[in-house]
Nucleic acid binder design. Structure first.
Ligand SMILES: [Zn+2]
Ligand SMILES: [Zn+2]
Lengths: 365, 365
DNA sequence: CAGGCATGCCTG
DNA sequence: CAGGCATGCCTG
């Protein structure tokens, strides 16, 4: 499924810190890195403030030991990468290929409401990149997963031992422990040897004439819920356009990797935007008339206790049953009630026009 | 928690096939094994039929290259170990220490109904062994987990990569990948180098005078649900008394390792033995009299639809609500109903002695 | 593919 | 500790 690497990049080493030689246009071969700022694949400065002075000219020849850009521009490797969107001078933006976004079968779906991508594990998901101005040749796009919550950001995101250590999906793959894969022959898997952060890097190639975007296919190789890995902790992916270790732009995408993207998206959206106000509170319209509500809001007196006496054993037993039914109603979840009613619409028994007719049968006494 | 090894056994090697030297009473030092039948810790013949001819005298000197017992008695290493109970000539039996068996807080609980041990992961669980006759000195007890279902038996049971590879609980432990641990200084961890089956072995020491049993503390180091490990597949533990590779007795215990032993036991028992027939079918006794049942068995006519007409809007609405309540009752789980009733006993409102009194209030028309 | 279950874990 | 949720997966 994921192609072996090739092209302009050398394969990265299977384990340990990442070393790559770039043999493209304007950058000469780099020696194996020991300082992270001299490698186009080392993690750039992610502590960069959200508004960056854009007073640097263009591309620096960063083959060591050259000019060193101001520290906050540099691709150093802070413990916590920045997750601030930064369009930069080239207008870097990402978006989701819109097809299948809404399909039920979709292996991924993006929610505009909660701004999050829901994706199945191991499937390929197209992400589109664009700029309003051509970035300098030799620019790359680094994708790096990080934990979203402050309590977790410091921890490096990688696959859980289970998924990283099985043969499945890992045979011949250069980076079995990486959460994020890119299905691009030129993809390079990086592991910063000071922070341990893992990322995948692809060269940025300008869109074909007439096209606004380039598309990369990414795959997420664990569930967000994976024990010993993400462990139910939300993540984001930081997409960064870089050139010689300089950050040219950054976009952040919230991602949830799960078995049922559709279901989980729906429940997230419901959580954030409750029930989109329907009907009057406490009543619902059924079959053309109002009826008393079941399982809805508490009213005054709901907790008061009344004594009801009744003559006759059978009547008592009937009422006892009814009393139980009524009181137990509060245990029924609202959506069970809704389903039940939806069903009733189809097989209505007691319709208003029946009122006044003689009862068909009464099991009296 | 688990003590380092020592005593009469040498520590086993951290990885690879198991090698042990036994220095006890009647057995001389064994060379590192290459043939599994020459090691007291190698897995014995588990393909042994359930009724074994008991015509062999007693203990064989099995230091290589000695007498070889008939093949079906030998501790060879078939792919699928026998899981047949076999009391043997010494009357080998196991049982659970009965304390806390019923407690809600219990970290483990044994169900006599479904004959299964429910135990939390990583906690220590006492198992008692007894014989009616003293087995020969130098006898050992091997505990080996196997999958219960035929589809899975061939697969070796071990910990999932997640749990086997984290530091947690594994620091200094000689067998981090073993599912089963025994909290006994003399415990030895064995891995059969032909089948790869893992087991833990302790010397059998006769009970103290006046005691019938010896007790060993075992811990289960994964959940039955662990992804990449047991993976929700039921297991059993085979406890085998062995002497010089001969099987003297065997007892099999179904085990489920889970987070909520009490809950899971209860639901298993419910599954196997529906509602343990209480009272008359369809009725239950409450507060000294019978009442119609709620949420119990289906009766004839339960699915028939009757038309009920009623004069007056309010009456209609009341009946509509009641109809809904009654029909929705079937959605309420029986134990919710039971809880509700238990509660009702304390705050009974409509008591039988009220019958016949004048209604206190009627909201007529 | 939807409904529902199984099951670890979080919360009150 | 019990109730309920979260979430992968099984079943129809
Ligand atoms: Zn995983
Ligand atoms: Zn495990």
């Amino acid at each position: 499924m994921l192609q072996p690497m090739g092209g302009r990049f050398e394969p990265c080493s299977r384990r340990g810190s990442f070393v790559a030689r770039f043999t493209g246009d304007r950058i000469t071969s780099l020696a194996p890195v020991s300082s992270s700022s001299s490698n186009p694949y080392s993690s750039p400065d992610s502590a960069m403030p959200s508004s960056v002075p854009s007073d640097y000219s263009t591309d620096h020849g960063v083959t060591p030991p050259p000019y060193t850009p101001p520290p906050q521009m540099m691709a150093s490797t802070p413990t916590v990468p920045s997750n601030t969107d930064y369009m930069g001078d080239y207008g870097f933006e990402i978006s989701m290929a819109s097809s299948q976004t809404l399909s039920k079968t979709a292996t991924w779906t993006y929610s505009d409401l909660v701004k999050k991508l829901y994706v199945r594990m191991g499937v390929t998901c197209p992400i589109k990149f664009k700029t309003h101005t051509r970035p300098p040749p030799g620019s790359i796009i680094r994708a790096m997963p990080v934990f979203k919550r402050p309590e977790h950001v410091k921890e490096v995101v990688k696959r859980c031992p289970n998924h990283a250590s099985t043969k499945e999906n890992n045979e011949g793959h250069p980076a079995p422990a990486h959460l994020l894969r890119c299905e691009n022959v030129q993809a390079q898997y990086a592991e910063d040897h000071t922070t341990g952060r893992q990322s995948v890097v692809v060269p940025y190639e300008n869109p074909q004439v007439g096209t606004e975007y380039i598309t990369c296919l990414y795959a997420f190789m664990c569930f967000s819920s994976c024990v010993g890995g993400l462990n139910r902790r939300p993540i984001q992916v930081i997409f960064q356009m870089e050139k010689d270790g300089l950050v040219l732009g950054r976009r952040v995408l919230d991602v949830r990797i799960c078995a049922c993207p559709g279901r989980d998206r729906k429940s997230d959206e419901k959580r954030c935007h409750p029930p989109p106000k329907q009907m009057k509170r406490g009543f619902s319209k059924t079959a053309g008339f109002q009826m008393m509500s079941v399982g809805t809001k508490k009213r005054k007196g709901d907790d008061d206790v009344y004594t009801l006496t009744v003559r006759g054993r059978e009547n008592y037993e009937i009422l006892l049953k009814i009393k139980e039914s009524l009181e137990l109603m509060s245990y029924i979840p609202q959506n069970t009630v809704n389903q039940y009613r939806a069903q009733q619409h189809r097989q209505l028994v007691a319709v208003p026009d029946n009122i006044g007719k003689k009862p068909k049968k009464e099991n009296k006494k």
